[in-house]
Design a protein around this nucleic acid. Sequence first.
RNA 1: GGCCCGUUCGUCUAGCGGUCCAGGACGCCGCCCUUUCACGGCGGAAACACGGGUUCGAUUCCCGUACGGGUCACCA
Length: 507
Amino acid sequence: MSSKVRVRFAPSPTGPLHIGGVRTALYNYLFAKKHGGDFLLRIEDTDQTRFVAGAEKYIIESLAWCGISPDEGIGGEDRGNGPYRQSERKPMYRQYVDQLLADEKAYIAFDTADELDAMRQLAKDAGAANWQYNYITRGNMKNSLTLPKEEVEAKIAAGEPYVVRIKLPRNHEVRFEDTIRGWVSVNTNNMDDKVLFKSDGMPTYHLANIVDDRLMGITHVIRGEEWLPSAPLHVMLYEAFGWECPIFAHLPLLLKPDGPGKLSKRDGDRLGFPVFPIDWHNEETGETASGYREFGFFPGAFINMLALLGWNPGTEQEIFDLQGLIEAFDLSKVSKSGAKFDFEKGKWFNQLYLRALNEDQLAAELKKELDKEGLAYNEAHLGKIATMMSERATFPQDLLTEGQFLFSAPTEYDEKTASKKWTADSAGMMQDLALRFSALDDFTEEHIEASFKAYLEEKELGFGKVGPSFRLAVTGKGMGPSMFTICEVLGKDEVLARIEKAIAVLG
RNA sequence: GGCCCGUUCGUCUAGCGGUCCAGGACGCCGCCCUUUCACGGCGGAAACACGGGUUCGAUUCCCGUACGGGUCACCA
């Protein structure tokens, strides 16, 4: 049997992690747990210019909210493979670069970024598709392949900046088997001699990633499809080092709900849904990007939705908790094509999770919302109210907003209902009802209903004649839950006061 | 544009040569329940991109076209 499964999620701390990243982390986690393996979190911060303060903390907090905790690495244990931030591993990479250089699998290049830009522009102006630093062009560039050895040494000694590039063989078919996509093959003629080591002494992603995965014993590389084009380069690197390749699995991307392209932060703003797991506060601009947590999502619903975006269990089951996902997860059931993100489906999951809560849990959710708004309430009624409102709520805050009238008397009356249902007789009928209610000793749902119905019978009135205006008087609305439950919760005094007020306002 | 990857209802998807006049879910529509709304129940409309092969037989295999996506930095 092969060695223990070890996977990693390796984001760069350049900003908030978006939901595509969360899904990648989730799949890695599920895969690891399914196979009794380890899930590591590594921070790939080799680009100091793009570092964003707080991003690492955000990533850890986001994953924690989702119920994902790294076994090893950042936010997890140090099991002797650290450090787990590439910036802190800086001294470790040099020897690998030197090894490649010594084996002539890489070479030193002195061309500056400006020179390269100029070269690319020149090629573009000449109508060339795209310029590459490869087996053809490298012969005309300033590098250790073209310059005399003494000159190269002199330049280095003089402190002239340089990079190290991989030396790709000509016309070599690079093949690897992707778990999700099957065999992928690319000819080195279509690849270029990517920079492995930057002039600032830092490795590029490509080099650091391969070295770290090797050193950390990573067995499976599960990442987004945007990495597929560089996978052949990575394969060549493993080959250059003489190392065995991990198993690759490139995940389909999350796409915009409407137009073309992958899901971006802009889409969330434009279409009104979050693209981040939790709120992100941009310290520079002072802006806040909205997150699922603050939007009112339950982590379970969020994870459930994300898991099913690009993967399916092969059965018709759609509701899974984390443990269920771990048991059902299988890379072979991950789809190949990108998934357009559908927020509506996400809402449906949340609604389901909300309704699965028991009365006490619902009451606790409602209490949180009330406290947030600083509203007064009778604790004893919370369970009843929350349960009553839960069937028309998708998010915890709906428990409150949909039943606002339970906590404060209506200040205005729904116009449509008022004009249609509040007739000349309404005030009189409300007066009658008030009189009857005031005589009730036991102001409970059953008694209120009985009293109400007795009144209808006595006056030979239909429900539709009195009900709507009664609701309007007490709640200010034309629709909602059972009036009798509402009245019990409000209490006799409040109901009577509201009826009186409605008569005064509506006439 | 080069290279790579993909293409089943509006959306997420099942399907791994006959069981498919294609199944589930979200959304949408209708009916029932209900004083109303919601919930719930029942039902409906809705898809194999196109063209060639291979095969007795293609949604399923192969090729091409179209379309979609990704990627082409001393960013990850």
